[in-house]
Lab assay of single mutants.
Amino acid sequence: KELVLVLYDYQEKSPREVTVKKGDILTLLNSTNKDWWKVEVDDRQGFIPAAYLKKL
């Protein structure tokens, strides 16, 4: 499984997104879309802008 580091706080703006904090380490589920990556946060799955994440 691939992990990503959150570079900036992000507040979800729709039900398909998730809220994260800078410094969080998340499981990356899908990065095929270059703009929005799907991650897992506390048993929730959702999207975050790829620019907010860095692969570890």
Rank of each mutant, 00 (worst) to 15 (best):
L3F: 15
P15S: 13
T19K: 04
Q45S: 13
K21M: 10
L28I: 05
W37P: 01
R44K: 14
K55C: 07
Y52T: 08
P49M: 04
F47G: 02
G46P: 03
R44D: 04
V41C: 08
R16Q: 13
F47V: 07
V18A: 05
A50H: 04
L29W: 05
K55V: 12
K1F: 10
K21D: 03
L56T: 06
L26T: 02
R44H: 08
D35F: 15
L53W: 01
K38V: 15
L5P: 00
D43T: 11
P15E: 14
N30S: 13
K38S: 09
S14K: 08
K22Q: 11
Q11N: 14
S31W: 11
E17K: 05
L7N: 02
K54T: 12
T19W: 03
I48R: 01
V39S: 00
V4L: 04
W37V: 02
L53V: 13
I48P: 00
G23K: 02
G23D: 06
E2I: 14
I25C: 05
A50Y: 03
I48G: 01
W37H: 03
R44A: 06
R44Y: 06
P15D: 13
Y8E: 14
S14A: 10
L3M: 11
K55D: 04
N33F: 08
Y8Q: 15
W36H: 04
K13W: 05
L56V: 11
F47I: 09
L29P: 00
D42A: 10
E12S: 14
K22R: 14
Q11S: 15
G46N: 02
S14D: 15
Y52W: 07
L5R: 07
T32W: 10
E2T: 13
K21I: 08
L56F: 09
L56W: 08
A51M: 15
V41N: 12
Y8I: 09
T32K: 13
V41Q: 09
T32N: 13
Q45F: 08
I48V: 15
K13G: 08
G46A: 12
L53M: 05
E40C: 09
L3I: 08
D24F: 07
L5G: 03
V4Q: 00
D35K: 15
D42R: 10
F47K: 02
Y8T: 09
L26Y: 05
N30F: 06
A50P: 08
E40Q: 15
A50E: 04
K13I: 07
L7S: 02
V18F: 08
V4Y: 06
Y8A: 13
K38G: 05
W36F: 08
D42G: 15
L56D: 03
Q11P: 06
D9A: 07
Q45D: 09
G46I: 11
T27Y: 12
L29K: 06
N33L: 09
L3R: 10
Y8V: 10
W37L: 02
L53P: 01
W36A: 03
I25G: 00
L26E: 00
W36S: 04
V41D: 07
Q11D: 15
I48M: 13
N30M: 09
S31T: 10
T32S: 12
K34F: 08
S31A: 14
L53F: 02
P49N: 04
V20D: 00
P15I: 10
F47T: 04
K54M: 13
G23N: 07
D43S: 12
V18D: 01
K38T: 09
V39N: 00
V18L: 14
K55M: 09
K13Y: 05
V6D: 00
R44M: 07
Y52L: 11
L5W: 07
D42K: 12
P49W: 03
N33T: 06
S14L: 08
F47Y: 15
A50K: 09
Q11M: 15
Y52I: 15
A50F: 03
L7F: 02
S31E: 12
K55Y: 08
L28S: 02
Q45C: 09
L5F: 07
W36D: 02
K55E: 06
I48E: 00
L7V: 07
